[in-house]
Computed example of a mutant assay.
Amino acid sequence: MKPFCFADGQIIESKNAIIHPMDLGIIRGYGIFDFFRSVNYKPLFLDHYLDRFMSSAEKTFLPMPYSREDLKQIISDLTDKNDMEQGGFRMVLSGGLSDNHFSPADGKLFIFPEELLFPSEEKYNNGIKLLSLEYVRPIAEIKTTNYALAVWDSIRWKKEGAEDVLYHLNGQVSESSRSNFYIVKDGVLITPDQNILLGITRKHVLQLADKVEIRPLSMEETLAADEAFISSTTKVLLPVTQIDDHTIGTGKPGPITLDILEKFRALEKQMTSSKVL
């Protein structure tokens, strides 16, 4: 975490940020967040992330006390205060102090600049393993702070040498715990259309691919894929070469996966080539 954050309506030292223990974010796990990267002092795809964050607030009935321009100014000020050449920004809006300890209330906004840890180069070169898990995230289209199952289940992943999980229900694949999921079959990129978060990285990945299908995706199709990968803000695009004990394709990152990754990195470089916010 960087030295300065936004809390209580002002920029303060991050170590002094506090939340009331009776906030719904604590006692009910109710709140929203979003996370974006900053490269060369410039937030990447900021307007898209603000769109989603403000939409999440509206859909969860949490009042947003700041306008889009307010948020942009706060982020700019935090960038300067922390000399934030690169890293991540975590925006959190808590569920608030509720009179009945249950209904959404006026939440508390935090914006935390953070250091970023990317996956190792080995994972990009060799791919990763996912473990299948029968589950669909509650209100999956909203980026809520409720990751209880994933945090609990992550102990299993580590024991089995996996990077993450692949959620599925009734034979249909949805997403990973913190990433969108894709397969490639016969040159076509296929990604699920239901029970998913509409990822910002996903939005741009779909624009970079030549042939795309956005539709229900079965587990049977997934295991028969030529290639597979996940995408997220912090992983960008990470090849998947194994699901449970099943090898995907050749067991190595595929050419279409690597081509999209290269195109995305070129797009990122183009968008962050100047220091102007």
Rank of each mutant, 00 (worst) to 15 (best):
P119N: 15
D164S: 11
E121T: 09
E122V: 07
T144W: 02
E121R: 12
K158F: 01
S154K: 11
L117R: 10
N125P: 02
E114T: 15
S176P: 07
L117V: 10
E175D: 10
S154V: 05
K143P: 00
I155V: 13
S103I: 00
V136M: 01
E141P: 02
S120Q: 12
L166T: 00
R178S: 08
I111Q: 00
Y167Q: 02
S179T: 10
G127V: 10
N126G: 07
G107S: 11
E114M: 14
N125H: 08
G107C: 11
P119K: 15
S132V: 06
R137T: 02
P104E: 09
D164I: 06
P138E: 12
E141I: 12
V165M: 07
A140V: 09
K129P: 09
L130Y: 12
S132I: 07
S179A: 13
S103N: 09
H168I: 00
A140F: 06
N100C: 08
N170C: 05
T145M: 14
F118V: 09
E163F: 14
D106E: 13
L117T: 11
E115Y: 08
N126S: 10
K158I: 05
L166P: 01
V136I: 14
E114F: 09
Y124F: 15
P119V: 12
K159M: 13
L130P: 00
D106G: 07
G107Q: 03
K158C: 03
H168D: 02
W152P: 02
E163I: 03
L131W: 08
E141D: 14
P104R: 09
N100W: 02
F112G: 04
H101Q: 12
N170G: 05
K123S: 15
I155H: 11
T145K: 07
K143E: 01
V173I: 15
W152N: 13
L116D: 10
F102L: 12
I111K: 00
S154W: 07
F102V: 05
P138C: 14
L169P: 01
S103K: 04
Y147V: 10
G161E: 06
E160K: 13
T144D: 05
L169M: 12
W157A: 07
P138T: 10
V173E: 07
D164V: 08
Y135L: 06
A105I: 10
L130C: 01
I128K: 01
G127S: 07
N126V: 02
A148G: 11
V136S: 05
K108M: 11
A150Y: 07
F112I: 14
S174M: 04
V173Q: 06
R137M: 06
R156C: 04
A140E: 00
V165A: 14
V173W: 00
G127L: 08
E115C: 04
F118L: 14
H101R: 14
Q172E: 13
E121Q: 15
D106I: 09
E115L: 09
W152T: 12
S174L: 03
F112V: 10
I111N: 01
Y124K: 04
Y147K: 09
E160T: 06
S154I: 04
L169H: 07
E163R: 09
E134I: 04
K143L: 05
K158T: 09
P113D: 03
K158A: 06
S174K: 03
Y135T: 03
K143N: 04
I142Y: 12
F112R: 02
E122P: 02
S174C: 13
S103R: 02
K129Y: 08
P113F: 02
L109A: 01
L149Q: 02
L169W: 04
I142Q: 09
I139E: 13
D153M: 15
L117P: 01
G127Q: 06
